[in-house]
């Protein structure tokens, strides 16, 4: 699905990713954990194609294509989806209109016709049920005035609508109450198939009780310093990052 080799990225003079290696196969769920500021969101932004960052070294292959050569929108159209840690508000643009535009852009890229309005609305109905999204939210402006939890839920709703191959969920669990957490996790699990993959970025083992990862990686100072199975998350939760920090301390 995606293969990241020795990825370095910086902003200005500051190197934030310092050689990431990660291989995610179809059907897998990977969790990435790590202390604040270690570069988790940066990694997802760089993969999604945010222009603020300079990729200075490394390669990323996504479904056989050189991901770094693709524009942001083409990455999305190829099936990369990022659930934002801080979803953006777009005043005056309804969620529905936004998603219809997105969906049809993706379809056009794959040579498909626009989805008929009737089918689109049926899809909205089906997918909003999946994440138990209030119908009112679907017609409101994108994220405008949404509570923190509603924004996160809306991200998963969008993911369900766009049906990506690889979804990166950047701290989708933060800000969710216990019920919402379960609903969102159930949604993610329902969307899982042998043909898609998910990268879950989180600080909390709790989410991983619901979305059970095949692999857990610890990101620290721009590198993946440790990888393991789901028990690694438990271990980190119990012990904290002190040991890692000591072992991998490097100069900034």
């Amino acid at each position: 699905m995606i293969s990241i080799k020795n990825l370095h990225a910086s902003i200005g003079d500051k190197e934030i990713l310092r050689g990431i290696n990660l291989e995610v196969k179809a059907g897998e769920i990977h969790a990435i954990m790590g202390p604040n500021g270690s570069g988790k969101s940066t990694l997802s932004s760089v993969l999604a194609g945010r222009e603020d960052y300079d990729v200075t070294e490394g390669e990323v292959t996504f479904n056989g294509k050189n991901l770094l050569d693709l524009s942001t929108e083409d990455r999305a159209r190829e099936g990369l989806f990022l659930a934002f840690q801080y979803p953006i508000e777009i005043p005056g643009v309804s969620n529905i209109n936004f998603l219809r535009t997105a969906l049809n852009e993706i379809r056009a890229y794959h040579g498909q016709e626009e989805m008929a309005a009737k089918d689109f609305l049926a899809l909205v109905k089906e997918k909003s049920k999946l994440v138990e999204l209030d119908a009112k939210l679907a017609s409101r402006s994108v994220n405008e005035g949404f509570s923190g939890g509603e924004k996160k839920r809306n991200e998963i709703f969008q993911m369900a609508m766009l049906n990506p191959k690889l979804a990166i969920l950047d701290e989708t669990d933060s800000g969710l109450d216990i019920d919402a957490l379960r609903i969102v996790a159930t949604g993610v699990n329902k969307l899982k198939s042998k043909d898609n993959a998910t990268i879950v970025i989180t600080h909390y083992q709790r989410l991983l009780d619901y979305i059970v990862p095949d692999f857990v990686h610890i990101l620290y100072k721009g590198r993946i310093v440790k990888s393991g199975g789901k028990e690694l998350a438990l271990e980190m939760e119990a012990k904290g990052y002190d040991e890692i920090k000591k072992e991998f301390e490097i100069a900034d």
Binding site: A48, E73, R75, L82, P87, I88, P91, A102
Partner: peptide
Amino acid sequence: GEDQLFYCKQRGIDNEKAIGLIVNGYCK
């Protein structure tokens, strides 16, 4: 907003269409 444009593009919407959406939203 660069953030708004990035958000739109991340959903598969190109620059011009994203601007159209954002501006029409702004003038709604």
